[in-house]
């Protein structure tokens, strides 16, 4: 194993944490939709990719890079949420009562469709969102340069986590969502229109996917194939943390982000295998995930 100074490792932990924040944002959306609707949306990664491409397009359209980034931040996730709502209304609604096999296959078909739609609109180009000046630079920490953008992600991630926590724990809407997770019949019996709860949750979940994609486009190049990459990561996160658990999504994301980042230092070619190894380990020791409940 190569000798690597401790500072480099610590800096890499920071970078890994910032990747973890993006994983968390995406995985929490996946988990949220699963928690309420009991549907695993395979197309979640596609919506993330759509968010990333939209962000670069909006950024290029605004052209002024200080402004472009924030317009993209505002618009891209919202458009993705809108696409999600349209999909929910036209397709998902029809399959809530069907067997899970058909639900999976439907979202799988959507993955294929969305991947090609992105390819048709943007082609095979590799794009990137320009950052405003204060985010584009780097800060010296322990004598090493850390991208400001990564530091910003370390702020944004916890903010989103807090926002979701607040929404779910402290608002009426959140209480309805939590009740629907526990017992859908009761909620409809109370006269609450579950259709709107579903649509709202779906929109929020998709918004998170779009936000994740938008955020990654400021950090890494955007290209076809990122949909599968993220969905596999997000799956690893939820298997490790436990589906439907927010704490689980957060912890799983951080574990994967950090271990992969450190692994890259020591063995760059095998680092991608780390999430799978951790996942396998969790499956052996605690099959329902660190924060999940055993299903029946």
């Amino acid at each position: 194993m190569p000798q690597i100074p401790i500072e480099s490792v610590l800096i890499q932990v920071l970078n890994g944490l910032s990747s973890g924040m993006i994983f968390f944002i995406v995985a929490s959306g996946l988990s949220l939709i699963f928690g309420v609707m009991r549907v695993i949306n395979f197309a979640h990664g596609s919506l993330y990719m759509l968010g990333a491409f939209l962000a670069t397009a909006v950024g290029a359209w605004v052209a002024e890079k200080n402004l472009g980034f924030f317009v993209a931040l505002l618009i891209a996730p919202l458009v993705v949420a809108f696409v999600g709502v349209v999909l929910e209304f036209t397709l998902f609604k029809r399959i809530y009562n069907k067997e899970h096999l058909l639900q999976l296959l439907l979202t799988y078909g959507l993955t294929l469709i969305l991947a090609d739609v992105v390819r048709i609109i943007w082609g095979g180009e590799i794009l990137r969102l320009s950052l405003p000046e204060f985010l584009a630079g780097a800060t010296r920490i322990m004598g090493r340069r850390v991208a400001n953008y990564n530091l910003a992600l370390l702020v944004v991630g916890p903010l989103i986590a807090f926002g979701l926590w607040f929404l779910l724990q402290r608002t009426r809407w959140g209480r309805i969502i939590r009740a629907s997770v526990a017992n859908p019949e009761i909620v409809s019996a109370l006269g609450i229109n579950t259709q709107w709860v579903f649509t709202g949750v779906f929109a929020l979940g998709c918004w998170l996917a779009g936000l994740g994609g938008m955020l990654i486009s400021g950090r890494a190049s955007v290209s076809l194939g990122m949909d599968v990459e993220i969905i596999v990561q997000a799956f690893a996160v939820v298997v490790i943390g436990g589906l439907g658990s927010f704490t689980g999504a957060l912890v799983g994301s951080v574990i994967i982000g950090v271990t992969v980042a450190i692994g890259t230092l020591y063995a760059p070619s095998t680092a991608q295998i780390i999430p799978f190894a951790i996942m396998a380990l969790v499956l052996i020791l605690r099959p329902w995930g660190l924060f999940g409940k055993p299903e029946r």
Binding site: L91, L106, L112, I113, D116
Partner: peptide
């Protein structure tokens, strides 16, 4: 893939 996807749905 687009054709496949539409067919699947």
């Amino acid at each position: 893939p687009l054709v496949l996807g539409i067919l699947t749905v």
